[in-house]
Design a protein around this nucleic acid. Structure first.
Length: 590
RNA sequence: GGGCGCGUAGCUCAGCUGGAUAGAGCACCUCCCUUCUAAGGAGGCGGUCCUAGGUUCGAAUCCUAGCGCGCUCACCA
């Protein structure tokens, strides 16, 4: 429609001044004013040398004459509100309806992007923090796909290190050959021994402190901690017994994680294991020394000097030659770009406590000469906290909110509310159980994703996860409601008559639908599922208002009836489409 | 102490590429189911947008300083 260009021309012809398109500010008109788009004329007064009102009047008239679809305008101080004809909006709507992949770019037309998320340690089960991580990573991957990118979903499994040895040692000492059962998943079993280790080790250290040893020293002198360290050395030397135990216990964890991932509805294309990539990291560090990127201190430890970037020195290899976190991350990144030569972006979904780590990692990769380091991005998200008075989550002490328990709890709540409302007559037990899971997970996912990723959030297991208001179930409910209405009609409807009158609530819905492609694009650029979630909420609210304001099926005018049916169908599709980007399923009944 | 991030209604959060009277949900109070799903809708109550300066015709939004909270600065991951 060339609104901006026409305005530039208008200013040229009215005032003889040339301005750049950037100085024109357009925004959608606030709902308490009449109009569709608003042009802020304050910045244009310099050119017009007239009052805001008069400038608005002149520009408005110019637009009215030169753009056919503009049907009118009004001026409030420095705001020129312009309206488009109903025919224009209905035309836009018809186009949207005809587009079966509305809002999405063509698949695989963009660059290839890798998204890393989850990346657990194999010494404890997934908890609330992982839930946010998983949901974010999965959703961002879906949003990138919707923007045409090829997406590779990966994780790097932290399957080695001192923390893994802790649970192994505890199991070896006190496990008595315990095995996972249907009651106790493998990851839970391993986690129990990790907690057991920490508990006993803590007591040992306390005893040392009580006997007069300085705390810092005591922490390195406990018998258990020393034994764990010996075990790590044995592991690195591939001691057969330690290695076998490691493989067995890691296997238990993977089996446990698989169940959690399945229930959560997330998946991965490829897994990387720290136990493999850390070796690559070591090799790359050696190379880096030769290149002069790193330097070795007298004690043998290897460092990267980041003073020129305003940072400190960073350790990349210990004095005893063993690797640190940074070492394996260097190796992992290089593996990834080797595995996918067309990779043009690597998104790390990792909590904001590691902001500094990733800043350094990307710098080091760049120093090592990998130009792709520029395309790495740390999707940093805030912590999930518990309400005041509920303490802190510490998996070390076994006080974290467990992911499996949480999901089960959500489904249970969904069940009790559903039963209370009693709308599911005639539905089979299995369908009901599935539905409770869909609703429970919908509530959980939406709750976690509607918040801006970078912000930390509070999770109150009892109060926060409501099923009414701005929640997943509210959106699911509206979807089910539309399905219910539409189940009464069965007819093919072509393009909508451009001449029908539009109710305000209908026009509002068309405008909301019109926003969808832009929302997907922006959500992709900002890696923000929250934008999609908030959009879906606005759309659903708009539909409910429409539903309560006008009859949908009980209308005489065939053209209006058709329009309301098609409008309902399109809203339904877009709701489901948006929520699919969040990994939330939409029920047809609830 | 240095670095990074955050601070909006009692609570949980939108809004932040500067624009009109700062928005939702929960909670609390009124109304609306013999009509297409009331997990809904309409309305009410509720604000020093942390504070103080600055830039601007205009600041919740940008800049500076301060305060508060979180994270981080490990031969932990």
């Amino acid at each position: 429609m060339r609104l901006i260009e026409t305005l530039v021309e208008g200013i040229q012809s009215l005032y003889g001044e040339t301005i750049s398109a950037k100085t024109i500010q357009v925004q959608s008109t606030r709902k308490d004013f009449q109009g569709d788009l608003t042009i802020v004329t304050f910045p244009l007064l310099r050119q017009s040398k007239k009052s805001p009102e008069q400038t608005g009047e002149e520009l408005g008239s110019y637009l009215l004459e030169n753009i056919e679809v503009i049907s009118g305008f009004n001026i409030v101080k420095g705001f020129l509100n312009i309206s488009f004809s109903n025919a224009y909006w209905i035309g836009r709507f018809n186009e949207a309806v005809a587009d079966l992949n509305y809002g999405f770019s063509k698949p695989n037309t963009g660059s290839t992007v890798m998204v890393e998320y989850s990346s657990p340690n194999t010494n404890k089960p997934l908890h609330l923090g992982h839930v946010r991580n998983n949901l974010l990573g999965y959703s961002v991957a879906e949003i990138l796909k919707a923007n045409g990118h090829k997406v590779v979903k990966v994780q790097v499994i932290n399957d080695r290190g001192i923390h893994i040895c802790k649970s192994m040692l505890a199991y070896k000492k006190w496990g008595k050959g315990e095995e996972p059962t249907s009651e106790l998943k493998g990851d839970k079993l391993v986690g129990n021994y990790y907690v057991k280790f920490e508990k006993n080790s803590k007591a040992e250290i306390q005893a040392l402190v009580d006997s007069g040893v300085e705390e810092k020293v005591a922490k390195t002198q406990g018998a258990l901690i020393q034994e764990a360290q010996e075990m790590l050395l044995k592991w690195e030397a591939k001691d057969p017994e330690v290695y076998a135990l490691w493989e067995k216990m890691n296997g238990w964890c993977y089996d446990g994680f698989d169940v959690t991932y399945k229930n959560m509805g997330v998946d991965f294309d490829k897994l990387y294991y720290e136990s493999i990539t850390y070796l690559e990291g070591k090799i790359r560090v050696e190379e880096g020394i030769e290149k002069g990127v790193f330097f070795r201190k007298e004690d043998g430890s290897v460092w990267c000097d980041l003073a020129s970037e305003g940072l400190d020195e960073k350790l990349v290899l210990r004095a005893d030659g063993t690797s640190v976190y940074m070492t394996q991350d260097i190796g992992t990144a290089i593996f990834r770009y080797n595995d996918y030569p067309d990779l043009n972006g690597l998104v790390y979904t990792v909590g904001n406590e590691q902001d500094y780590h990733f800043r350094v990692l990307f710098l080091i990769l760049k120093k090592l000469g990998f130009s792709w380091a520029e395309s790495c991005y740390h999707l940093s998200y805030g912590m999930v906290g518990l309400p005041k008075g509920m303490g802190k989550m510490k998996s070390r002490e076994g006080t974290a909110v467990d992911a499996d328990d949480l999901m089960e709890e959500m489904a249970r709540t969904a069940k009790s509310i559903s039963e209370e409302l009693g709308k599911l007559g005639g539905m089979s037990i299995k369908d009901k159980t599935d539905l409770y899971n869909v609703i429970g997970m919908g509530a959980l996912k939406y709750f976690m994703l509607k918040v801006d990723p970078k912000k930390s959030m509070v999770f109150n297991p009892e109060e926060s996860v409501d099923f009414s208001g701005n929640t997943g179930p509210f959106i699911q409910y509206t979807h089910a409601r539309i399905c219910s209405i539409l189940s009464n009609v069965d007819k093919k409807i072509g393009a909508i008559d451009l001449m029908i009158a539009l109710e305000p609530c209908e026009k509002m819905l068309i405008k909301l639908l019109d926003d969808y492609p832009r929302i997907i694009k922006e959500a992709g650029e900002k890696y923000s599922p929250a934008m999609v979630a908030n959009y879906a909420y606005d759309l659903v609210k708009g539909y409910n208002h429409f539903y309560q304001t006008v009859p949908i099926l009980k209308v005489d005018d065939e053209n209006v009836l058709n329009f309301r049916i098609v409008l309902s169908r399109k809203v339904k599709v877009v709701i489901a489409s948006a929520m699919q980007l969040l990994g939330v399923k939409m029920p047809e009944r609830m």
